Simulated assay, not measured.
Amino acid sequence: MRHAEDHIHIAAVLVRQDTLRRFWPHHDYPKLRAAVLRIEQRLGLTVTAAADRTAARRPGRGEVEKAARQSRVPARLVLRRAVHRAAIEAGSLAEFVTALEGAGVQVMVRQAPSGDPIGYAVAWPQERTAAGEPVFYSGSKLAPDLSLPRLLRRWGSLDPGERGRDFPISRGARVVGRARDRVARGNSDGLWNDAEGVDGIVHATGDVLAAMGATADGGPWRSAAERFDRAARTPGGTTTTFEPVGGDLRRLAHRLLRARGVRAKDAAGAAALAVALVALMREIAAWQDTHGRPYQANAAREAADLLVPAAIAPVGAAAAAARTRQVRNTRERDAALGSRL
């Protein structure tokens, strides 16, 4: 059924007319996506994303309309950003809950009869049911990598002795540079056939972008983090393995977020970090292309393009500041010379 110039609808009857038996489809959405991809490639159409379980849950129609009536952003999006930031900042479940409560998020931790935590759910105070009850979302309903088992695995890769607040941002460019070298080596000689090491680096890169987007001034970091979000997840919903290089990136994101902002004197370091991240994301895009992930590759490239202003702006600001200092010093020197004369 063709409803418009840009799309069609396909309807299928699931009951046989001769026996009246019901056909129960199994994994029909992934199979449909695979069939659509084959049609797009055969007819030369725009290739859309595969059903690889990397996309975050989008707000439903009811959530969007309710948020529009109240002139606010859908609660699912607000909670996803808050939970992701708390996951980067925290190093344990207790710190995670404290960070969320500090951000104004209601948290409910589910426990097994043994007392072990098995899950959690979060709610935004502005999101209420008709009866006035909070609407809770589990972590896995926000994004595939925000479930409690994956968060516990994430926190296990952090060294408790390195959770200091004082972190020179200039070191970040060196850490990102090492990650880029590893991905580039995988692109050149195929050392990463199992993909686990690079997937860990890609996921940790998203954490670094999110950490800078939560602390740095301006929009390029936040825009790049949101665009790179899809590229940061592993297709198929498999668990990401954090190799040493990916672990270094995760520690970098953790300490950047704990630093509570980028100081003015670190503007040059922020620019160097942006340049290093742009180069890393371009290598990641090339690696995604070689592994048959065109949508993730495009997301990585677009995120790199969005981050370019963050690398250029500090350079212009530094040049302007240097020019201002030069003019001020010249005026002070002339005034001193005039007073002596």
Results as ranks from 00 to 15, higher is better:
42 R>S: 05
105 V>Y: 03
15 V>N: 05
30 P>R: 00
88 I>T: 03
299 A>N: 09
94 A>N: 09
15 V>S: 07
125 P>I: 08
290 T>A: 13
253 A>T: 02
324 T>S: 15
228 F>K: 06
70 Q>Y: 06
222 R>T: 15
73 V>M: 13
33 R>Q: 06
48 T>M: 06
179 A>T: 06
93 L>A: 02
132 G>E: 07
134 P>L: 11
61 R>D: 05
88 I>P: 04
267 A>V: 12
118 I>D: 14
73 V>T: 14
336 A>E: 14
127 E>W: 01
340 R>C: 13
150 R>K: 12
236 G>L: 08
228 F>Q: 06
294 P>W: 01
254 H>T: 06
67 A>C: 04
190 G>A: 12
92 S>Q: 07
46 T>W: 00
286 A>I: 00
247 G>F: 00
36 V>T: 02
338 G>Y: 13
59 P>I: 00
199 D>Y: 12
260 R>K: 07
3 H>G: 09
158 L>V: 07
87 A>N: 01
244 P>S: 03
224 A>H: 08
247 G>K: 06
29 Y>V: 12
222 R>E: 14
101 E>M: 03
242 F>C: 02
203 H>G: 04
133 E>N: 13
275 V>D: 12
12 A>K: 01
181 D>C: 03
181 D>G: 10
105 V>G: 04
237 G>F: 09
331 R>K: 09
137 Y>F: 15
80 R>M: 01
209 L>T: 14
336 A>G: 14
165 R>S: 08
233 R>P: 01
198 V>R: 10
184 A>D: 09
154 R>T: 01
223 S>K: 13
56 A>G: 10
73 V>N: 06
144 P>T: 04
211 A>D: 10
129 T>H: 03
194 D>S: 12
258 R>P: 06
139 G>C: 08
176 V>K: 04
137 Y>G: 03
95 E>N: 08
318 A>D: 12
32 L>F: 11
82 A>N: 00
212 M>L: 15
85 R>G: 08
74 P>K: 00
22 R>D: 04
145 D>K: 01
176 V>W: 06
332 E>T: 11
232 A>K: 05
223 S>Y: 12
245 V>K: 01
33 R>H: 08
68 A>W: 08
312 I>C: 05
50 A>S: 12
28 D>Q: 09
23 F>C: 11
77 L>Y: 02
42 R>Q: 06
332 E>Q: 13
100 L>H: 11
206 G>M: 04
105 V>Q: 03
265 K>T: 11
91 G>E: 08
84 H>S: 14
90 A>G: 05
149 P>L: 09
103 A>Y: 02
103 A>H: 09
151 L>V: 10
229 D>K: 11
63 E>R: 04
204 A>Q: 05
262 V>I: 15
187 N>T: 08
317 A>C: 07
39 I>A: 10
218 G>F: 10
69 R>P: 06
114 S>M: 05
132 G>N: 07
51 A>D: 13
